[in-house]
């Protein structure tokens, strides 16, 4: 029974990692922008949930309202960042890293000034409290919800990339920007939309995380490193790789933690990733393109 419980814990952790990393797989994976403020977009999503709950009151309604609103808030912040700073630095990844790191610190301080330094609380709706008991196994409802939410986000994103004109444009720009431009696609507009969606997904992740953890100005910093790890290990540019990497890392952490301790498991996961990247620097899945870059 313990093995099944850990299997669920691992999948659940994987789904949390996936939610945190999914947006990043677009902005970092597809566009090559190292956005250190991605975690703060998650934080913005979490505070959106807090504000919505303050206005609406009912925990269930506010959660369902906060999900789309978190997407919009995260997306708009991303759009603002892209339009003001990042688009000037597409050629300078190191500068982007430093600038977005600075933006992250600014956003944390803004949150501290607006909402106060102590953590705030977002109540979980009654239909998400407690656990579903299956044969002595307790599956927390919040974790089932996040698992489902992650699945919905992945499917929606995959469909959007695969089956919509917008998705085709995004893929075209990723695979060969010059050729895409030559075919009449505005790579500028495509970049903006991609960044909006990627940042918006961070907002959704932030809303979901209010069900599990603390909601404070530094929420994002707890997840940003793991999110980058997932995207790098998964292979940048492919959602498939992100999904597999998130699941694998989640399961690995859960089972290692079960047989050792949380600290040791974390170290072992890092070692495994380093070793893996030595063997496969491009990550699990990589895009084959004919571009020279």
């Amino acid at each position: 029974m313990d093995i099944i419980a850990q299997l669920f814990a691992g999948l659940s952790l994987g789904s949390v990692l996936l939610l945190a990393a999914l947006g990043l797989s677009l902005t970092f994976g597809q566009m090559g922008v190292i956005n250190m403020a991605h975690g703060e977009f998650m934080m913005a999503g979490a505070y959106t949930a807090f504000v919505v709950q303050g206005v609406v009151g009912d925990a269930g309604v506010s959660l369902l309202l906060a999900l789309p609103l978190g997407f919009v808030v995260g997306g708009l912040l991303g759009l603002l960042l892209e339009a003001t700073l990042i688009h000037r630095m597409y050629r300078r990844p190191l500068d982007t890293l430093l600038v977005t790191w600075g933006v992250a610190l600014v956003l944390q301080q803004v949150a501290r000034d607006v909402f106060g330094a102590p953590n705030v609380d977002v109540r979980a709706p009654a239909w998400l409290s407690g656990a579903v008991e299956i044969g002595g196994l307790a599956l927390p409802r919040t974790r089932l919800f996040i698992l489902a939410l992650a699945a919905v986000c992945v499917v929606a994103l995959a469909l959007a990339l695969r089956a919509t004109p917008l998705g085709r444009r995004i893929r075209a720009v990723v695979q060969n920007r010059d050729l895409a431009e030559a075919s009449g696609i505005s790579s500028r507009a495509t970049d903006r939309v991609t960044f909006f969606i990627g940042s918006g997904l961070a907002g959704i992740a932030g809303v979901a995380l209010t069900l599990l953890g603390s909601i404070g100005p530094t929420l994002g910093t707890n997840y940003i490193v793991d999110a980058f790890l997932v995207v790098v290990a998964g292979g940048i540019g492919q959602i498939k790789g992100t999904v597999i990497a998130a699941t694998a890392l989640g399961l690995m952490q859960a089972f290692l933690e079960y047989s050792t301790t949380a600290s040791v498991a974390k170290v072992l996961v890092f070692v495994a990733i380093v070793a893996f990247l030595q063997l496969r620097p491009q990550g699990l899945v990589s895009v084959r393109t004919r571009s020279l870059a």
């Binding site: 566009m31 597409y90 050629r91 010059d178 980058f228 940048i236 620097p281 870059a293």
Partner: peptide
């Protein structure tokens, strides 16, 4: 190749390096 002056591997390496720096 306007926006991407670093290769994919370059970006990966850069990200890994920054993560390591964060850890330090």
């Amino acid at each position: 190749m306007r926006p991407r002056s670093t290769s994919r591997h370059g970006v990966t390496r850069l990200a890994t390096a920054s993560l390591a720096a964060l850890g330090v």
